[in-house]
């Protein structure tokens, strides 16, 4: 066996040093602000707590207790309806706006700025604005409904429609994001393809199906995944609009975690729901990475 070459060893040492020096602090910071809190939440989800103190080990008992409770499945239902309902509106709406802006010959820039406006507003402002619009006593929407002979009802106070209205408001706020992403993707469609399909006598739907769709499907998918992660962790809009009510019909996983973290003495059930959100978001994140990997090659 040959003795190790001193020069080579020193070379390896020198090669290792710069990355450690350059990236070490960043990695440490990343560990401190992401992995450490995540580890603490996992630890809390397996413990019994009193305020923020761990007072005992619960193991998977917390998971069993939370995952078999009716309120958790109510939250799951709300979260999934909120997620899918919002996506069902924003994706077609954003795509439609992007297509419309692309085909406009004049005024597209001004309209794009106007359509972007909701996305630039803070969620608290959006919430207050819609709270006024949907006020059943003096809101413009209820006033308009009354003036055409419709009964507005309780709007956000009605357990039957509150979640639907929350979805509408969320979609209004977030569809510009889809529009921007779709506009960018549409820039990548070669103009010759439009000409070719026009020569072949293809109409709007053929253009959409055979030219546009193959160029935007991955971007649309990754946009949907990014939005899904955001919807699952969104709190402010719900807090301002409904506070999770009426009768808990607009309370989602993340909202419940937020409320319970301040209200409960034992925060381990909230930690369990946090882990559920984390797992779902990790799966969505992995799917997102695969899709964006396809986009970037």
């Amino acid at each position: 066996m040959k003795p190790p070459n001193k020069a080579n060893t020193a070379g390896i040492g020198r090669n290792w040093a710069p990355p450690v020096i350059w990236f070490g602090p960043a990695v440490l910071l990343l560990l401190a602000v992401t992995l450490y809190p995540t580890a603490v939440v996992i630890w809390l989800s397996l413990s019994r707590t009193r305020y923020y103190d761990v007072i005992g080990w619960a193991g998977l008992g917390n998971y069993a207790s939370v995952l078999t409770s009716t309120p958790f499945w109510d939250l799951t239902f709300n979260s999934l309806v909120y997620l899918t309902g919002s996506l069902a509106i924003v994706l077609p709406l954003g795509l439609f706006c992007a297509l419309a802006l692309q085909t406009m010959k004049r005024g597209a820039s001004s309209l794009r700025v106007l359509l972007l406006l909701p996305w630039t507003l803070s969620m608290a402002v959006v919430g207050c604005f819609w709270l006024w619009l949907l006020n059943p006593s003096y809101g413009p929407i209820s006033y308009g409904m009354k003036s055409v002979g419709l009964t507005p009802g309780l709007m956000l106070g009605d357990p039957g429609v509150a979640l639907l209205l929350l979805i509408v408001v969320t979609a209004w706020w977030s569809f510009p994001y889809v529009m921007v992403m779709m506009s960018a993707a549409l820039q990548g469609v070669p103009g010759e393809l439009y000409e070719a399909i026009e020569i072949d006598g293809g109409g709007f739907w053929s253009r959409l199906r055979h030219v546009v769709w193959p160029h935007i499907d991955t971007t649309l998918g990754s946009t949907a995944l990014a939005l899904s992660i955001m919807y699952l962790t969104l709190i402010t809009l719900i807090l301002v609009l409904t506070g999770g009510g009426p009768l808990g019909t607009t309370s989602t996983w993340s909202f419940e975690v937020f409320v319970d973290a301040f209200r409960s003495i034992d925060i381990s059930p909230s930690a369990v729901i946090s882990i559920v959100v984390l797992i779902v978001n990790l799966l969505l994140g992995l799917a997102y990475l695969r899709l964006t990997g396809r986009v970037s090659g």
Partner: peptide
């Protein structure tokens, strides 16, 4: 039932406007 949505702030607004 409109007041089922009222917290302290909403109640104050409604008193202010005279609703």
């Amino acid at each position: 039932p409109v007041t089922l949505q009222f917290g302290i702030n909403e109640l104050q607004d409604a008193l202010r406007t005279g609703i």
